[in-house]
Design a binder for these strands. Structure first.
Lengths: 300, 300
DNA sequence: AAGACGCCGTATCGTATGTTACGGATTTTA
DNA sequence: TAAAATCCGTAACATACGATACGGCGTCTT
């Protein structure tokens, strides 16, 4: 017996018009619907969308106040967000999420969840979790989002600043090592906090600040992001699925999966994303970067 | 790999008194708790319990009115039911259900199952190649090899030095950031080549030098490895599948796959291997590292 | 550089939801 | 069989939740 396929309030069953994409094509799940429209949303609602896909779908089952607080926006923004998705009110949105969950939990596949793993070979669970994390991370990054970020980074007039937290700064450095080769004006913010802040004076509206930040989120990075944001710098944030508070100031937010059965969180997904960004940017800058690389060779 | 062992579920995790059975033994899930007490319940509440386990757990996330109507009982009966389970009010009961769901949805196992179509069609070839590289890299690492390396790194009397090449040094730094937490005497060789060589004087027979080196292999690293080897230092080399010349001096060689359809080589496999090493070592040093971490917390 | 548009947050309102008191019905016990 | 205890539902209540109007602010346009 299907759990409430129309029993609670007679009308809602199948004719939900909200899940139908404007283009005419159906989005099979709300998550897809969101990622389709994420790019066309205003900043606040986009933050709501990002926190929803990052904590899908449970955040959407909580109250509007909880949702809004977790996303760092106000309640009306949440309601405008669900309205933009096509729902007439918040309960209808929640009902759709629950129906989706019900379908998943009822599927015969889910019954095997509690059974031991399919155990493909002798690979460790940590490794499998890491691979899944990477795959999941990329599932939630739309091509358009990727393209826009690359476009920002490809602008030769923009300066690019990179920085990371205690454990993620190596990822920032890894990315810096590559970016400095394919384009000029790439700077890694190193050393002490006071040193970064002095670099703020070099940052302007056209520039980009790329921040890697997973929990525990460092206050120093938040302060830097806030000040940079105040100067109009475009912030690209690569964080974990719980979203660093810097998301508040970020133009683009990438929510990577970091949870693994270990004492540590895994930054592998962030690392692979950084590599993907490097690759895309290199292709976008192909002409210029090739010439640049040739010049560097000669300088040896 | 960010710090902090069990902070995935905020703080609310264990202190929920409701899930603790009166007898003193813990019920691991609410479903178990229900089936334990089902027999001692009055008729109406038992119907509530049965409908809940039958449509677990989504019916419990709906309103009391929905729940009661679906179970064929009145609203107060539902509330008495959740009160009997030990919850102080209905929202608290719902929060517990959501936490349980969150745990299930977060486990990578269930996620792979719940996502019906792993559609590898949309994922980029670079990403697929990266994932395959990681898997293949680990296929060629024997458990014994891993265990011996961990054993070397776990020796508290040994000093550990880490270094990497132009693109891989961030991986070495990433690993250093973690190792310095779980054990003492961990040093990252930074700065100029002349600086490293001065550190050679600190290296002895019991010490370990962990080198990351992929092509193009840097002469400076080779020279360092040679001199360290001459002093009897045990070298662990993490390189690409074409093997850095340092392999000549290394006690252990990990050959990672780095080839991807891109202009760059991918260091993702090396990164994930580093994470695996960190995880294994942390477990091996569990007792000492836990004490060490506790001390560090107090020093803040 | 000035205006207009769109976005977002504060404050308020109406209502649905969870909660509780109370009386009747049913089962249990003497 | 009668009395008592327990259980359950009806109905009224209060909270808090979702919804909305409004004003300030930033951003883009001409």
């Amino acid at each position: 017996m299907g759990l409430c396929s129309g029993c609670t309030n007679g009308a809602r069953a199948g004719e939900n018009p909200s899940i139908r994409a404007e283009g005419g094509e159906m989005a099979s799940s709300i998550a897809e619907l969101i990622s389709e429209r994420m790019d066309t949303m205003p900043a606040g609602e986009r933050r709501a969308a990002q926190t929803l896909v990052a904590n899908y779908p449970l955040i959407g089952l909580k109250t509007v106040a909880d949702f809004s607080q977790h996303a760092g926006v106000s309640s009306p923004t949440i309601l405008r967000f669900v309205a933009r998705l096509g729902f007439h009110n918040y309960p209808e949105f929640q009902a759709a999420l629950q129906d989706e969950l019900a379908a998943q939990l009822q599927s015969p596949l889910s019954r095997t969840v509690l059974e031991p793993a399919p155990d493909r070979g002798k690979t460790s669970p940590v490794l499998e979790a890491t691979l899944t994390n990477i795959r999941e991370t990329f599932r939630h990054v739309s091509e358009r989002q990727m393209g826009e970020i690359v476009a920002r980074l490809a602008n030769p007039r923009a300066k690019i600043f990179l920085i990371g937290g205690r454990f993620t700064d190596p990822v920032a450095q890894y990315m810096t090592a590559h970016l400095t080769i394919v384009r000029p004006n790439v700077f890694h913010l190193t050393g002490q906090e006071s040193t970064w802040r002095d670099r703020l004076i070099d940052m302007g509206k056209r520039d980009v600040l790329l921040i890697f930040d997973i929990r525990r989120y460092q206050d120093s990075l938040i302060r830097l992001a806030e000040k940079a944001h105040a100067r109009g710098v475009e912030i690209v944030l690569v964080t974990d699925q719980w979203l660093s508070p810097i998301a508040r100031f970020a133009r683009y937010v990438i929510a990577g999966r970091t949870a693994v059965p270990s004492s540590w969180d895994s930054s592998a997904a962030l690392f692979v994303f950084a590599e993907a960004l490097i690759g895309e940017l290199t292709r976008a800058l192909e002409a210029e970067s090739a010439r640049r690389i040739r010049e560097m060779e000669e300088l040896r």
